[in-house]
């Protein structure tokens, strides 16, 4: 029965509009945030893999000979 209801929705044409709006808002929001974000926080985060408290991992040179 629910199938019949959905088959006859008058406004099914709104699907593409909805998808476009979701898409547009999502990316604009993302870009706005990313370019207004705090620089120090960004720098701190980009360093994360380099400090893990273990001596085995904190050597600066590769262990390759």
């Amino acid at each position: 029965m629910y199938k019949n209801i959905l088959q006859n929705i008058d406004h099914i044409a709104i699907w593409p509009v909805i998808s476009f709006v979701i898409f547009f808002v999502f990316f604009i929001g993302l870009l706005v945030w990313v370019f207004t974000a705090d620089k120090n926080f960004m720098n701190e985060m980009s360093q994360k893999p380099l400090h893990d408290g273990s001596e085995l991992n904190s050597d600066t040179e590769s262990l390759m000979q």
């Binding site: 974000a37 980009s46 380099l50 991992n57 040179e61």
Partner: peptide
């Protein structure tokens, strides 16, 4: 990659 290069990620943004 940052570990092996011993460099921070180029851009966190």
């Amino acid at each position: 990659l940052p570990k092996a290069a011993n460099r921070p990620v180029y851009s966190y943004r």
